[in-house]
Amino acid sequence: MSDSTPIEHASSDDRRIVELAKEYFRRVDAGAEDLLDLFTDGVQFYFPKFGIGRGKMAFVEFAEGLQKLLSEAHHDFSNYLFLPYGHFLAVEGTTEGRTPSGKTWFGGRTPGGRFCNIFEFQGDLISRVHIYLDPDYGSDDRARFAWGTEGREW
């Protein structure tokens, strides 16, 4: 189910978890202190270069480290793909933002910025979120562009 596609045929549970994921992205972008209110106490999460974390305090540690990599980041979920399956939700989308060194990325137009999140919900709370992306937002790791960057579609 794409956000730009009407979801009137989706179940109420599907619509509910999509709205919860959107609220997660809103709070992440705002740096909202109440982001943790969306999680179970034992939330499990994964992020490349961090690994698997468990619990709200581990998520705070992760968020503090991520703030060192990003000056700003924004999720525009108007074109995201939301794929609900029971109490799971896969979300494919893009971000844009700026690194502390001033480099910008625009998911879909630059190498950095595409991601996929897999959420699991317990009622109205996120019990698991695994985030799959390349954390090289500014494309600084040039050596691993084995196929080059010219003529590529991102």
Rank of each mutant, 00 (worst) to 15 (best):
M1F: 11
S2Q: 13
S2L: 10
D3K: 03
D3M: 06
D3C: 01
D3E: 10
S4Q: 07
H9G: 04
S12R: 10
S12N: 12
D13P: 02
D13F: 12
D13S: 14
R15M: 04
R15N: 11
R16H: 11
R16K: 15
V18S: 08
V18M: 14
E19Y: 00
A21K: 08
A21Y: 12
E23I: 06
E23Y: 06
E23V: 05
F25Q: 05
R26C: 04
R27W: 06
D29Y: 01
G31K: 05
A32L: 02
E33Q: 12
D34P: 01
L35E: 02
L35H: 06
L36S: 07
L38N: 09
T40S: 13
T40M: 06
Y46P: 08
F47H: 15
K49M: 13
K49H: 15
F50G: 01
G51P: 11
G55T: 02
K56E: 02
A58R: 08
F59M: 12
V60P: 01
V60N: 03
E61M: 07
E64H: 14
L66C: 11
L66K: 08
Q67E: 15
S71I: 00
A73Q: 13
H75R: 00
F77M: 00
S78G: 14
N79I: 00
Y80I: 00
F82N: 05
F82T: 06
L83Q: 13
P84I: 07
H87Q: 15
L89Y: 14
V91G: 04
E92I: 01
T94F: 11
T94V: 05
E96N: 07
T99M: 02
P100F: 04
P100R: 03
S101V: 00
S101N: 12
K103S: 10
T104V: 14
W105G: 08
W105V: 08
F106W: 14
F106K: 15
G108S: 01
G108Q: 02
R109I: 10
T110Q: 08
P111E: 11
R114I: 06
C116D: 02
C116R: 04
N117E: 13
N117P: 00
F119Q: 10
E120Y: 09
E120G: 09
E120V: 04
Q122Y: 07
Q122K: 11
G123P: 01
D124F: 01
I126E: 08
S127G: 09
R128I: 02
H130K: 12
H130E: 15
L133N: 06
L133P: 03
L133C: 13
P135C: 09
P135D: 11
P135G: 12
Y137P: 04
G138S: 03
S139N: 15
D140N: 13
R142F: 12
A143C: 07
A146G: 06
W147T: 14
W147G: 09
G148M: 05
T149P: 01
E150D: 13
E150N: 07
R152W: 04
R152C: 01
E153T: 11
E153R: 06
E153K: 07
